[in-house]
Design a protein around this nucleic acid. Sequence first.
DNA 1: AATTATTGCGTACATTCTACACAAATGTAT
DNA 2: ATACATTTGTGTAGAATGTACGCAATAATT
Lengths: 221, 221
Amino acid sequence: MKLAVDAVVFGYGPSPKVSVLLVKRKYDPFKNHWAIPGGFVEEEEGLEEAVYRELEEETGIKLNYLEQLYSFGNPKRDPRERIVSIAYFGLVRPDAYNVVAATDAKEAEWHSIDHLPELAFDHDTILETAIRRLRSKITYEPIGFELLDETFPFSDLENLYTSLLGREIDRRNFRKKILSLGMLDELEIKVKKGAGRPANLFQFNKERYFQLKNDGFVFEL
Amino acid sequence: MKLAVDAVVFGYGPSPKVSVLLVKRKYDPFKNHWAIPGGFVEEEEGLEEAVYRELEEETGIKLNYLEQLYSFGNPKRDPRERIVSIAYFGLVRPDAYNVVAATDAKEAEWHSIDHLPELAFDHDTILETAIRRLRSKITYEPIGFELLDETFPFSDLENLYTSLLGREIDRRNFRKKILSLGMLDELEIKVKKGAGRPANLFQFNKERYFQLKNDGFVFEL
DNA sequence: AATTATTGCGTACATTCTACACAAATGTAT
DNA sequence: ATACATTTGTGTAGAATGTACGCAATAATT
């Protein structure tokens, strides 16, 4: 019996869509199919350590956030032999897009979660599980910020949420709600992008969030 | 590298306390320490299958609810060799108490989660994770009912929640809230226990819950 | 200078949450 | 039998929160 880790890595962009990092398999089984990056855990290696190593090797990417997702152990999930996989769930900021593009010749690509190709093994199930987790988790933990640049206009956050939740959000109420939580610092910087009034930049204050959390506060939308 | 499963099994009772099923280890390492029941996954066996088998072997208990909790893979968690454990989380109804007592000579016992003994390996961490999960999960999924008898007076449910959440709940508001969700059937049966007005029995209607869930309803306290 | 696009803010109303009081139906002590 | 303690069942007022909007401010575009 072998043990592997797989990592579902989400990014936000380049269009205002959430996408996931996939690699093209070079060998059988499922040669030339897209798959979630991952690999076997080495004997003396921690699980997260293995995730970071495999991601570095296969895609050159560095994660901004990582958490364990679920373990998949169906005896037949790999046609060759019994492989149990512990799946992880990672987030990167938009600048990671260029990193992947720069990683020479590696067959790693971003795919919008709305148009996914066929995947190897049971990776469709894993990815589905990850998407569900991301969708629900952004409503009770402030992980959405990990997908944005360190400073961002409010509209970016709003677009991320509408895109992920798949429904319209009232821009004004959403803003009030988020700001009332008191986890965002408003910067004195404005950005102009195309037409319209310039937007103020905001920054997620992680320390402040942990303070609040310790005081029994719960993030919730 | 070996793969194991461990199962944190919760019950509600016999006193109005949530308790967990532990087994006493017969061999080293951690001989005579209490531990979470579990064991190695066999080559052709599914993960949940392994959980059910081990629980049957070690405690004779049959679960009412089971879900995967988390996987623990610290390379040093077992002093002998590398063992990765996939932990599960199970619930049983009160009648399971007698079952365990009847299972001959096996060293399985219920322990209140408020007074836990020292545990083998990293089982304290696993148990802590499980308790956190149980505490939070009863507020957004109707799994509390899986710890009660099929039919129960409302006060049982209330006591379960106060005990788990560790804070007072207003009895009247709690009742209104739960009943407004429309997942409980009120039976025409009353039970008297000691002093006080006899209580009506209720029953969780699981089908109705799934219907509601499909219509976008979300359980939430 | 008018038009369009985007940001920022406020207000009225509906819904939900919270605190609290009292009646009904039983057992228990005298 | 009567008074009292105990538990269950129901309602109501005010506070807090959520929801649906309207409109001004600041930019690019025509």
